[in-house]
């Protein structure tokens, strides 16, 4: 956990630099031929969605490690990434709605992409609730890890929803594989790539701060318990 303390400040500084550079580029981006200025919402929406999925992937891997190796560090990482992922998921849904109202004509549609993303938010919130719903924190952590691994089925569903089913949401603009192709023209693409990097750093930074806070809280709880036993 010492490494977290070391990387926190450098990651924070790098995050600020890339975020400011990215946002400055977004303000200078040309208008889209159809959406006009509303295309700027893309630069929050897409990186947020990517980071939401990435955070859940981290939660899943950390949960597997926790169940397998009984690693406390993995559990702390899972708990931290859960909070961060929930924030990015909420940001994705909110920015998507704000774009959807003027562009599609609706805030919300129950298509496969939007619904599976809402399921992800419910999963994140469920993990947060489940952890503290059991009196024994060890059991709570284990139950949370199991739910997290089961919930991972939502990840491929979200990713492929726009390919497997016909949705109101557009298919991926950046994709590899059989349907490879870049559907975003150069001047609109560069800020997106820079902001994706910025959001990755932001995710790393937020997870670091959160993990340190969780670790400190657990140490305090342990001290508190020890003191109470000593008093008895």
């Amino acid at each position: 956990m010492n490494i977290l303390k070391k990387i926190q400040l450098p990651t924070g500084i790098l995050t600020w630099i890339t975020l400011i550079a990215g946002v400055w580029l977004v303000f200078n981006v040309p208008d889209d031929f159809q959406q006009g200025g509303a295309v700027k919402i893309l630069y929050i929406h897409v990186p947020s969605a990517k980071m939401a999925l990435l955070s859940y992937l981290v939660v899943t891997v950390a949960s597997i490690l926790h169940l397998w190796k009984r690693s406390e560090t993995a559990d702390i990482l899972a708990e931290a990434a859960t909070s961060v992922g929930a924030a990015f998921t909420a940001m994705t849904l909110a920015s998507g709605s704000i774009w959807g109202k003027p562009m599609w004509g609706t805030w919300w549609a129950w298509d496969a992409r939007l619904t599976s993303m809402l399921v992800l938010l419910i999963l994140f919130k469920g993990l947060m609730v489940l952890r503290h719903s059991l009196d024994d924190p060890v059991k709570g952590a284990r139950a949370t890890a199991i739910l997290a691994i089961i919930g991972a089925v939502d990840l491929p569903i979200i990713h492929y929803s726009v390919v497997w089913w016909r949705t109101l949401h557009q298919p991926p603009s950046l994709s590899a594989g059989s349907n490879a192709g870049i559907h975003i023209a150069g001047p609109l693409l560069t800020p997106l790539l820079i902001l994706t990097v910025a959001f990755m750093l932001l995710t790393l930074y937020m997870t670091t701060v959160k993990a340190r806070q969780i670790e400190a809280r657990r140490r305090l709880d342990a001290l508190e318990t020890a003191r109470m036993h000593a008093d008895e």
Partner: peptide
Amino acid sequence: TTILAKHSEDYVPVDMSEQGIAKSKES
């Protein structure tokens, strides 16, 4: 009773509108 617009996955600046229209139709 309701009309929703479906956006394609193409994002193109205004000065490339013609290519954009053709591409989004195709997608």
